[in-house]
Amino acid sequence: MQTDVVRIGTRGSALALAQAAETRARLMAAHDLPEEAFEIVVISTTGDRIQDRALAQAGGKGLFTKEIEEALIDGRIDLAVHSSKDMPTVLPEGLELSAFLEREDVNDVFIGRTGGGLTDLPQEARLGTSSLRRQALALRIRPDLKVSVFRGNVQTRLRKLEENVVDGTMLALAGLKRLKLEHVGTEVLDISDFPPALGQGAICIETRVNDKRIWELVQAIHHAETGVALACERAFLAALDGSCRTPMAGYAQVDGDRIHFSGMILTPDGKEVHEITGEGSLIEACEIGTQAGTRIRERAGSRFFESWS
């Protein structure tokens, strides 16, 4: 039996801690280990500390992973638990995504200060979000809305809503479920109108390459179907050189031995939209994502990216 304490690195928000605790619980059950066999190590990230501007203006996705990955490389932690949608497509040398937990709901939830849904907001209502994707999708439906940057963890955003800073906001249903807060949502947004972020709802585990002990440990809780879907979505993201500066959405679904993917890119104002689909066998997951990204980039043309970047 493994006796060394396994150190799990995570951000310090309530949601990140809930995800780390879920990972620990699954590892305990899979290996019949006590809680004392694991230590959750909280690491402050640049993304957590920046609260006054959108992440797109500060450097993008890696802001939520850089310090955690440095701790993993240095050996201060043995594995890192992340929200998959926060992960850059290129990882630091020596690190890999070695496992994914079974995916939660991928939907976004609208939370209206006085109830109701997104389309029920009054004319020129104030919408708070830190996501360019959510901003673009909301403006596509309601171009009259006044969007403002809404940073902070889930509890901070809910408090700002109560304080009448904005009239509505949007959060991931998966996160609310993990925090036992799904009841605060006033409308679950349909993915046909409001497709999710690539990787949304999936927890991933990052480890050091060639760390056989930890790799074998986490394989026991790896959900293969989620892993295939995320491989497809991350390939699409990589083909588009995706970052927080690019409003994009996408969702891969596994159906037996087939995978179906739909992707979308938008301008931040939601006025120009390009959509793509692809499907094939599971072994083609990465290729399907890559081809979808390449085709949608060609379809949109360089002007699409140059006009607002």
Rank of each mutant, 00 (worst) to 15 (best):
Met1Gln: 12
Gln2Arg: 15
Gly12Val: 08
Leu17Ala: 00
Gln19Met: 13
Gln19Cys: 12
Glu22His: 11
Ala25Glu: 02
Ala25Phe: 01
Arg26Ser: 09
Leu27Asn: 02
Ala29His: 06
His31Asn: 09
His31Pro: 05
Asp32Ser: 13
Pro34Asp: 12
Glu36Trp: 03
Glu36Thr: 14
Phe38Met: 08
Val41Lys: 07
Arg49Ala: 14
Ile50Asp: 04
Ile50Gln: 06
Gln51Tyr: 10
Arg53Thr: 13
Leu55Val: 08
Gln57Phe: 12
Ala58Val: 00
Gly60His: 09
Lys61Asn: 14
Gly62Lys: 05
Gly62Asn: 13
Phe64Gly: 12
Lys66His: 13
Glu67Leu: 12
Glu69Pro: 04
Glu70Leu: 03
Ala71Thr: 04
Ile77His: 08
Asp78Leu: 07
Asp78Cys: 07
Ser83Lys: 10
Lys85Ile: 11
Met87Glu: 12
Thr89Pro: 06
Val90His: 10
Glu93Ile: 09
Ser98Asn: 13
Phe100Tyr: 15
Arg103Asp: 08
Asp105Pro: 15
Asp108Ile: 05
Val109Lys: 00
Phe110Met: 00
Gly116Pro: 01
Leu118Tyr: 04
Thr119Met: 08
Thr119Asp: 09
Pro122Tyr: 02
Leu127Asp: 01
Thr129Met: 11
Ser131Cys: 05
Leu132Glu: 14
Leu132Asn: 06
Arg133Thr: 15
Arg133Met: 15
Gln135Met: 13
Ala136Ile: 06
Leu145His: 09
Gly152Gln: 13
Val154Met: 03
Gln155Cys: 05
Thr156Arg: 10
Arg157Glu: 06
Leu158Asn: 02
Arg159Ile: 05
Lys160Met: 15
Leu161Ser: 04
Asn164Val: 11
Leu171Ile: 09
Leu173Gly: 00
Ala174Arg: 03
Gly175Asn: 02
Glu187Ser: 07
Val188Arg: 00
Asp190Lys: 02
Asp190Val: 12
Ser192Phe: 04
Leu198Phe: 04
Gly199Thr: 05
Gly201Lys: 13
Ala202Asp: 02
Ile203His: 02
Cys204Ile: 08
Glu206Lys: 05
Glu206Thr: 15
Thr207Tyr: 02
Asp211Glu: 02
Trp215Pro: 03
Glu216Ile: 04
Glu216Ser: 11
Val218Ile: 15
Ala224Leu: 09
Ala224Arg: 06
Thr226Gly: 02
Leu230Ile: 07
Leu230Asp: 05
Arg234Gly: 05
Phe236Gln: 08
Ala239Trp: 07
Asp241Cys: 09
Asp241Phe: 11
Gly242Cys: 07
Ser243Ala: 07
Cys244Ala: 14
Thr246Met: 14
Gly250Thr: 01
Tyr251His: 15
Tyr251Gln: 13
Asp257Phe: 06
His260Pro: 03
His260Gly: 08
Leu266Gln: 05
Thr267Met: 10
Asp269Lys: 01
Asp269Gln: 04
Gly270Trp: 08
Lys271Val: 11
Glu272Gln: 11
Glu275Asp: 09
Thr277Gly: 10
Glu279Cys: 10
Gly280Cys: 10
Glu284Ala: 15
Cys286Trp: 05
Cys286His: 07
Glu287Ser: 11
Gly289Thr: 08
Thr290Asp: 06
Gln291Gly: 06
Ile296His: 06
Gly301Thr: 08
Arg303Cys: 01
Phe305Asn: 01
Ser307Glu: 13
Trp308Glu: 13
